[in-house]
């Protein structure tokens, strides 16, 4: 059942190129998605009704729809509206939306966890809204949000495997491809799983470590 050495060396180049695409999609989804989450968080907390409504809509759809549906929606739906998107772009758009929607809630909660007295003090000192956000709320809020954001990043990395449904040649697609040729599905998926684990497990340990440190920081 286990892959032997010659199989591993034969499959590795394809698997690694898939792995690279998975990592790239993760990287860009987070790079776009987390700042988008911050924008959505601010939008949901904004005073203006229109901004709030649009932000809420984006958050609810991004959280409510399964990532698989978002992927299909963007990959299949947008071209029928006249907008061509490649599977790589579609994957990033869908996962960035998903990331933005979920992290907006994480970020919003962390901003709200900062005692309101600090905002009042900043306001009474005459600091501008943007300065208050930049110097008071974000540095503290992001510190609070960091473990949850990292945890979510691991989930997004794993979600890239869904992109095989839109013909993106990421890790799971490549593994299936090899399987369909060699009929050695189990060993090749096992290898793919190990590659996922090589990122997810150290990342999860890092989250634990940061959480413990954050706890110590808060209780000192």
């Amino acid at each position: 059942m286990l892959p032997d050495f010659t199989e591993i060396t034969a499959w590795m180049p394809d698997l690694m190129s898939g792995f690279k695409i998975s990592l790239q999609v993760t990287f860009f989804s987070l790079l776009i998605g987390i700042p988008f989450g911050l924008v959505l968080a601010l939008g949901v907390m904004a005073k203006g009704r229109v901004i709030r409504a649009i932000s809420l809509f984006a958050v609810e759809v991004g959280r409510g729809a399964p990532a698989l549906v978002l992927l299909q929606f963007i990959y299949v739906g947008l071209p029928s509206a006249g907008l061509m998107v490649g599977s790589f772009m579609a994957a990033i758009a869908a996962l960035a939306w998903n990331t933005g929607a979920y992290t907006s809630e994480i970020i919003r909660a962390s901003l709200l966890s900062i005692p309101s007295g600090q905002r009042e003090a900043a306001e009474a000192l005459g600091m501008k809204r943007l300065d208050e956000l930049r110097f008071i709320l974000l540095p503290q809020g992001l510190r609070v949000a960091l473990p949850a954001l990292l945890g979510f990043s691991i989930l997004i990395f794993q979600s890239t495997s869904l992109c095989f449904t839109i013909a993106l040649p990421e890790l799971v697609s490549r593994a299936y491809e090899i399987g369909s040729i060699t009929f050695r599905y189990f060993p090749v998926l096992l290898l793919a799983g190990l590659l996922y684990a090589s990122i997810s497990i150290p990342a999860a340990l890092l989250v634990d470590f940061i959480e413990k440190r954050a706890g110590k920081f808060a209780s000192r």
């Binding site: 007295g117 600090q118 003090a121 009474a124 600091m127 501008k128 110097f135």
Partner: peptide, 26 residues
């Protein structure tokens, strides 16, 4: 200027930064 019952200093900054930052920004 206003002083609150609960002080409301910014806990992530040094005492000096607490006093200097508003001067710089405002």
């Amino acid at each position: 200027g206003m002083v609150f019952q609960s002080f409301n200093l910014f806990p992530h900054m040094s005492v000096l930064r607490n006093i200097s930052l508003p001067q710089e920004r405002v």
